[in-house]
Amino acid sequence: MKRRAFSIAAGAILAGVLGFAGPAAAEKVKIGISIPAATHGWTGGLNYQTNRTVDAMRKAFPDVEFIVAAASDPNKQVNDVEDLVATHRINALVILPFESEPLTEPVKQVRKQGVFVTVVDRGLSEPGIENLYVGGNNPQYGVVAAEYFKRKFPNGASIVVMRGIPTAIDNIRIEAFQKALAGTKIKVLDMQYANWNPDKGFQVMQDYLQRFSAIDGVWAGDDDAALGALEAIKQAGRQDKIALLGGSGMNRVVKAVMDGGSPIDADIFYPPTIIIPAIGLTVLRSTTQAPVQGRYVLDSPLITKENAGDYYFAASPY
């Protein structure tokens, strides 16, 4: 932290000196990266992947300067974005919005000032603001979950669902999930928020197990919540009777799917690694003028024993 502050300060002084020395000196390209702080497992992984990518990029592109800011709430993120533009005078912004609505207007202002804008994962509320969008496929996430249960229970079943943290993403996934299940014999008994959190997942699952004597399947929405739910199901001794699905590709869960023998036999790919192409494309655009406008959407396929090897990152903390 201290070292980074120092290098930023040193960079600023250096830039000042160069500015005086001669206007001919090539200016450093500055890329600001604004992401949510590690409030749950997935964002934890996001912070890890961001720092890892930035470290690699710093070595590969010494002329590019990176400023990373992690915000613990949407309001702080708006401040971060303003600081990146006003004090760091960035040329490009890579942003994973905490929430769509509150960040839309501030990012629009950034774009107006001629900054190249890359939006990651959570889209803004107004189309056409960003130059580049990189994201996972949230409706597909819900659909893949629904397909999983449809395939598992062709003759119908009773399932319970855990929602995430109340956000636009959660709504999109759940809507797509319900739509894909419409008209089938799969009945959703109840939905509760488990905040993509293992402790909450454990608690909600314990109560579901008390409330419903027959549960065939659980969609925990996220692997953190699924791991909590798994302990509750084990405690009740019902692990052979309940199909449990999480989502997002946490390495521990992908490993369990790969090895087999776990009550969790599948996962949905939606990893925090999506920040990597977002940073990469933005750097390439700034250094090589690569025309990379548009949308770059990564699939969210089902991870099964057969393909789990492709999605397993042993060193990742998530």
Binding site: A38, T39, H40, G41, G44, N195, N197, P198, D199, F202, D224, L227, G228, E231
Partner: peptide, 12 residues
């Protein structure tokens, strides 16, 4: 011992 893990969301 309950979940065997600590995360940044523990004890929130």
């Amino acid at each position: 011992p309950r979940l065997g893990a600590a995360t940044p969301a523990t004890g929130l």
